[in-house]
């Protein structure tokens, strides 16, 4: 009985009905968190004594980069669930995460470049973290391209799931290799286990923004997945009734 909810998740219709009220509330919470965090980070937090106000891009850069990496794992885990339990819904989440993750990775890269110009004096530097983010971006693009290449949705889902899992095994290896290859990027300033090297007055809004980005990510994934449900189930009666009721 305890597993009933899990099996129900296999039904796209059940998922669509259950999450309908979430869309509004999750959207409201995530957007207001984003707004609050942005005001806190961009206006209230003190400016850096070396970098002045330019450091404030950290409140977009770091959350974007962190969530983009987490997104790949979400995608791969969804792919694994889909392959193991043959759960269609899981594949839909996987497909929805890919473009969002790619956009977040792109945001991380672009804000990094904008931040790099005043701080390091260059837009682009072949440094370890930038390069591994770029590789992550290509991994996302590969998943999207493979998804688009197949006409049959079933084959697209399963092949993408395998590719995502292969990528998941490779990400730590790529990350470590590139790290070994060259390092210029500052080491991570937020640490869970030891004291952070960032002032609390800056750290709290940063942590808040990371959480806000996770919420926004969850909200957009939910929206994309619901759209995917409608697209794939468009021939079923419940979707046609739903659409007819709206028009």
């Amino acid at each position: 009985m305890a597993w009933q909810w899990f099996h129900r998740l296999g039904s796209p219709r059940w998922f669509f009905d259950k999450t309908s009220p979430w869309v509004f509330w999750l959207g409201l919470v995530s957007l207001s968190m984003l707004l609050f965090g942005a005001v806190w980070g961009l206006m209230i937090a003190p400016s850096d004594f070396k970098q002045g106000n330019s450091y404030r891009i950290i409140f977009i850069h770091v959350p974007g980069a962190i969530v983009s990496m987490a997104g790949y794992y979400v995608m791969a885990i969804c792919g694994a669930i889909g392959l193991i339990w043959r759960m269609k819904l899981s594949f839909m989440v996987m497909k929805s995460v890919a473009p969002i993750g790619a956009v977040l990775t792109f945001v991380g890269l672009v804000t990094g470049a904008i931040w790099g110009k005043p701080t390091w004096g260059t837009w682009w530097e072949w440094d370890a973290r930038i390069t591994s983010m770029l590789v992550l971006f290509f991994l996302y693009l590969g998943i999207i391209a493979l998804q688009e290449a197949y006409r049959q949705q079933d084959a697209a889902d399963k092949t993408c799931a395998i590719l995502a899992l292969v990528g998941m095994v490779n990400i730590p290896i790529i990350y470590k290799s590139v790290d070994w290859w060259y390092t210029l990027h500052q080491p991570a300033t937020l640490k869970l286990t030891e004291a952070s090297s960032i002032s609390p007055s800056m750290a709290y809004p940063l942590i808040f923004m990371i959480v806000a980005f996770y919420f926004v990510f969850a909200w957009v994934v939910l929206l994309f997945t619901r759209l995917e449900v409608l697209k794939r189930e468009k021939k079923t009666r419940w979707v046609q009734e739903l659409v007819a009721a709206r028009v």
Binding site: A149, V166, I174
Partner: peptide, 22 residues
């Protein structure tokens, strides 16, 4: 992964290249 696709060559390069980095 791309064997069932007619024109898989370029796609194959796209998805495998990032894995060749290390």
């Amino acid at each position: 992964l791309t064997v069932a696709l007619r024109r898989g060559g370029l796609l194959l390069s796209l998805i495998i290249m990032p894995l060749y980095v290390p």
